[in-house]
Design a protein around this nucleic acid. Structure first.
Length: 393
DNA sequence: CGTCCACGTCTAC
DNA sequence: TAGACCTGGACGG
């Protein structure tokens, strides 16, 4: 599910499905979950949701009781409770009958109906979490979708922070500034502007102090400032055509929201084809991809940019489960045996960018493929998606 | 069967 | 800046 748009769509889903539904009793948790118990029990309560960036907050609101049953009341919560959820890689909400409860439904809110229905937080990989009586995480910035002015201000006023020394594609994942952007959004946003992913963030974001194009034009005195000015003008002209980067951090996620409920990123879903059609770059056949400095796959087209990871930067070595008698290879040989494109690519076809993608077919023909640790490989992906599409028809 | 990959944080050398 | 945290689907042998 989970970048900003999916989190928001989840909140929309909860509000839609739970409107008018009365919940009752305790909030139950799966045995295996490490997230905290939710100390809330109430004879009758409502559930609403709101999202901010990559978090969703549920509010449990007790309904007024008539006070006739003092004993039952004592054990109950009569104050509203907020629970803040983070979805990790696989979290989502679903509202089902008890019978239809999915595997990995780790937190459950039971309706008062008979038979009861259940709002559940499902999270296959358990990277997600919740926090009873929680608040928006203090280290996360304003929501890119629904706090646009604050988001923008938070970036432009802190451009001098060291955080912006890094490549733009990596900074876009920094939730302190870009709360809601994730791996597919960064690719789509940079692709729209054809900004090389590994240019410095500060450079890419310069001149974003205002959205008004053509204000603050100043008289030029020297040649140097004249050149600077003309550079600025050019930048502004470019922005006029394409929209600036910060604005796209807002509008591109909203496009996904506007695909509608249940249409975000979820390859396992029936409806995945709409989202897939919306993608222009991420995992798209013909695009390039390389791993960034954090080992995340960056999808792009054109030049990677000057701050692209160097060859020496080892792609993530496959760690294998350790076995007692594992002496066939040295560590290095293991890595090679496991394969890892960056090395293989560079040895086969020297290039200072470890670019995969359009080169990939050729390289595969050249037998680079075995041991190819290339991130994803667009060809493979499209095959996989084709299969899924066929399966869902 | 085994390997690689995935929409994201976290904390510990 | 590596791992750690997890499950499961696609693919290769």
């Amino acid at each position: 599910m989970p970048e900003g748009p999916e989190l928001h769509l989840a909140s929309v889903y909860v509000n839609k499905m739970c409107k008018g539904v009365v919940f009752s009793g305790p909030v139950t948790k799966s045995e295996v979950s490490k997230s905290p118990d939710v100390p809330f029990t109430c004879e009758a309560y409502l559930i609403t949701a709101v999202s901010r960036g990559k978090e969703v907050k549920l509010t449990l609101t007790p309904l007024k009781s008539d006070g006739s049953n003092q004993r039952a009341k004592r054990a109950q919560t009569d104050q509203p409770m907020d629970i803040v959820f983070r979805f990790g890689m696989s979290g989502y909400f679903t509202f089902t009958t008890e019978d239809e409860l999915p595997k990995h439904a780790h937190l459950r809110f039971h309706s008062k109906e008979n038979p009861s229905r259940v709002l559940s937080f499902v999270d296959t990989r358990r990277f997600g979490s919740w926090e009873p009586n929680g608040t928006w995480h203090s280290d996360r910035g304003p929501c890119i979708m629904f706090e646009y002015e604050k988001f923008r201000d938070n970036v432009v006023t802190r451009l001098s922070d060291r955080a912006f020394d890094r490549p733009i594609c990596e900074v876009l994942l920094n939730q302190k500034y870009f709360n809601g952007i994730g791996n597919y959004l960064r690719a789509e946003i940079l692709f729209r502007l054809k900004i090389p992913p590994f240019v410095s963030a500060r450079t890419a974001l310069e001149g974003h102090e205002s959205e008004d194009l053509n204000e603050n034009e100043k008289p030029v005195k020297t040649e140097i400032t004249a050149r600077k000015a003309s550079h600025t003008v050019k930048k502004k002209a470019m922005k006029e055509e394409t929209g600036d980067l910060l604005r796209l951090c807002h509008t591109v996620p909203l496009e996904v929201v506007n695909l509608g409920s249940g249409k975000g990123y979820d390859p396992t879903k029936q409806d995945y084809s709409d989202f897939e059609a919306w993608l222009q770059c991420y995992y798209v056949d013909g695009m390039n991809s390389i791993r960034d400095h954090n080992g995340r796959t960056m999808w792009f087209t054109g030049e990677p940019g000057p701050m692209a990871p160097k060859e020496s930067k080892s792609p993530k070595a496959k760690k294998r489960a350790k076995t007692a008698s594992d002496n066939d290879y040295t560590d290095d040989n293991k890595k090679m045996a496991k394969g890892n494109t960056k090395k293989t690519l560079s040895e086969t076809k020297p290039s200072h960018h470890q670019v995969t993608g359009s080169n990939r077919k050729q390289l595969e023909k050249d037998k680079v493929k075995s041991g190819n640790g290339s991130p994803a490989g667009s060809q493979r992906r499209s095959q996989r998606l084709t299969r899924q599409r066929n399966l869902t028809k």
